[in-house]
Design a protein around this nucleic acid. Structure first.
Lengths: 127, 127
DNA sequence: CAGGATCCTCATTGATACTG
DNA sequence: CAGTATCAATGAGGATCCTG
C-alpha cells in the first residue's frame, strides 16, 4: 500500500489542549481556586474553610475538597478526637500549582478594571 | 450609637477572590482556553477555528467568541465580501492574558502524569 | 464537627433547522 | 460562510435532613 505518510490530522493542538483542559478546568472551578488560596497560608479545618469562604454549601465544599484530594493537591488528616477534627492542607503539588494560579490571579487583578470597562462598553453598544 | 469599630468581616479574602473568579472562570471554560491558544499564532476565521478545535458546536463557538469579544480579549473584523468573512484575532489584552494562561498550561503539562497518577491511586483506594 | 443522602432548580451545552 | 433561534438533556450547585 502506497501511503508513505499518514494524513497528519489538523487537530494536534486541540488534542493537547483537551488533555490540558482536564487540569485547566480545575482552575476555572468556582470554588477550587478560592480553597487553594485559603489553604495557601496555613492548613485549615472543614468549617474553618467554609466560614472563611462564605457562600459555599457544605456539599460543594466536600466535593471540591474530595476532587482536590483525588488530584493530590490537598491532604486530608483526620484527628480522632471528640468531636472529630479534619485538617486540610496543600501538598507540595498543590503549592506548586498555586504559583501559576497566583500569577494568573495577579494578572486578573491588574486588568480587572480594563475588562470591566470593555464589558460596559460592549453592553452599551449592544443595548 | 456606640459601635466604634464595625465588625471586620472575616471574608476579605473571599471578596477579592469573588471578583477574581469572574476572570478566572474565563480560564476554566472548556473552550475559551483552546480558542485563545488557537488564535495565539495568527488571526483566524470562524469555520477555521471550528475545524481546528474540532468537537465544538457552532453555538458554543459563537457564544465563546462573543464573550471574549465582550471582555476585550478578541477583536472581530467583518469583511463584507461574498460570502462574508469574519476574522477573529487576539487583542493586546488577550495576548497579555495568554501569557499567564500559557504558564499555567506549561505547569499542567509538566504535572499531568503526576496528577493522573494520584487520581488512579485515589480511585484504586476508594474502589 | 465533618460529611453522607436526597431532592430540586437553573444554567450550560449540544443538536437541529433556518437566514442574510 | 457566519451566524440566529429553538428545543432537549445533562449536570452543577444549593437547601435540607440525618448520622458517627
Amino acid at each position: 500500500m502506497d501511503m508513505p505518510a499518514p494524513p497528519p490530522p489538523p487537530h494536534q493542538i486541540s488534542d493537547q489542549c483537551r488533555k490540558l483542559s482536564t487540569v485547566l478546568s480545575l482552575v476555572g472551578d468556582k470554588w477550587t481556586v478560592m480553597i487553594v488560596m485559603v489553604l495557601r497560608d496555613r492548613p485549615r479545618r472543614f468549617n474553618d474553610i467554609k466560614r472563611t469562604i462564605g457562600g459555599i454549601s457544605q456539599q460543594m465544599l466536600t466535593r471540591t475538597l474530595r476532587a482536590l484530594e483525588r488530584d493530590g493537591m490537598v491532604s486530608r488528616t483526620v484527628y480522632p478526637t471528640l468531636p472529630p477534627q479534619v485538617e486540610y492542607a496543600l501538598t507540595d503539588l498543590g503549592r506548586s500549582m498555586s504559583e501559576p494560579v497566583h500569577a494568573l490571579g495577579q494578572w486578573a487583578g491588574a486588568h480587572l478594571d480594563q475588562i470591566e470597562g470593555h464589558r460596559a462598553d460592549f453592553d452599551g453598544r449592544t443595548a
